[in-house]
Amino acid sequence: MPFTTQRKVRFQHCDPAGIVFYPRYYEMLNSVVEDYFAEVVGHDFNRLHVTSRTGVPTARIETDFHAPSRLGETLDFELTIRDVGRTSLAIRTAVHCGGEPRLTCDATLVFVDLDSGRPLPWPEAMRCHFAIES
Rank of each mutant, 00 (worst) to 15 (best):
F3A: 07
T5M: 11
V9S: 03
V9D: 02
F11A: 06
Q12E: 12
H13A: 11
I19M: 07
V20H: 00
F21R: 02
Y22M: 05
Y22L: 02
Y25I: 12
Y25S: 09
Y26I: 06
E27C: 04
S31C: 07
S31F: 10
V33D: 06
V33K: 02
E34D: 14
Y36E: 02
Y36V: 07
F37E: 02
A38R: 15
V40H: 06
N46D: 14
V50F: 08
V50M: 09
S52V: 03
T54S: 15
T54K: 09
P57A: 05
A59E: 01
I61F: 01
E62K: 10
T63P: 09
P68K: 04
T80V: 13
T80N: 02
V84C: 09
R86Q: 11
S88Q: 02
L89C: 08
A90E: 12
T93M: 15
A94F: 01
A94P: 05
C97L: 02
G98C: 04
G99I: 05
E100A: 13
L103W: 00
L103F: 00
D106L: 10
D106A: 04
A107Y: 06
L109R: 09
F111R: 02
S116N: 09
S116Y: 00
G117C: 06
L120G: 02
P121Q: 04
W122E: 04
W122F: 09
P123E: 09
E124D: 14
A125F: 01
M126K: 04
R127I: 03
C128Y: 06
C128R: 15
H129F: 15
H129V: 11
A131D: 14
I132H: 06
